[in-house]
Simulated scan of single mutants.
Amino acid sequence: MKQEWLPEAVPPNETAAAHGGSEITATECRECGAQVHGLNGRYACGLCGWVNHWSQGSTALPRAEDDPDYPHH
């Protein structure tokens, strides 16, 4: 018998902040009209390749200096 994989359910009382401040959002692709999902308002369409500008997201992006691999001199 093949076992079906189901995604892990997040309890409804937990907020996006409890998960690192990330929220899955959805919109319509501005090029082809497909429904696309993204993280914090940043989208990329897998059908036509449309990507919205990084500044249109709903949260600030981390700085390069915040990356643990950033070369600190």
Rank of each mutant, 00 (worst) to 15 (best):
G21E: 05
I24E: 14
N40W: 10
H72G: 05
G57M: 09
V36S: 05
V51E: 03
C45V: 02
A16I: 01
D69N: 15
E4V: 05
Q35R: 12
E28N: 14
Q3T: 04
P12L: 07
N52K: 15
A18N: 09
P68I: 13
A64F: 10
H37P: 00
H19V: 03
Q56A: 13
A26W: 13
A34T: 07
R30K: 12
E65C: 12
V36E: 01
E14V: 12
E65D: 13
G41S: 05
W54N: 13
A34S: 09
Q56Y: 07
R42W: 01
G20L: 13
H19F: 07
E31G: 01
T25D: 08
A64I: 08
L39N: 15
D66L: 12
C32Y: 07
G20E: 13
A60R: 04
E23A: 15
V36T: 02
T15A: 09
Y43P: 05
G57P: 02
A17E: 14
Y70P: 06
A60P: 04
E31Q: 03
P62E: 10
H37W: 13
H53G: 15
L39C: 15
A9Y: 08
L6G: 04
Q56K: 07
E14W: 08
P7Q: 01
S58C: 05
A9M: 12
Q35S: 11
G33P: 03
N40I: 09
V36P: 00
E14T: 12
H53W: 14
L6P: 02
D67Y: 13
G57S: 14
T59Y: 00
T25H: 09
A18T: 06
Q3V: 02
A64E: 11
H53S: 12
R30S: 09
T15L: 07
H72E: 07
A44G: 12
N52P: 15
W5S: 04
Q56H: 08
R63V: 01
S22A: 15
P11T: 02
G49W: 08
L6D: 02
W54T: 15
I24H: 13
G57T: 09
Y70K: 11
L61S: 09
L61G: 12
I24N: 13
C32G: 05
Q56P: 01
A44T: 10
G49D: 08
G20D: 12
C29W: 03
M1C: 01
R42K: 07
L61T: 06
L6E: 10
P12D: 11
R42Y: 06
C32F: 07
E28Q: 15
S55P: 02
A60K: 10
A16K: 01
E31W: 02
Y70C: 15
V10L: 13
E8H: 05
G49L: 09
Q3E: 04
T15N: 05
S55T: 15
H19Q: 08
A17Q: 11
W50N: 03
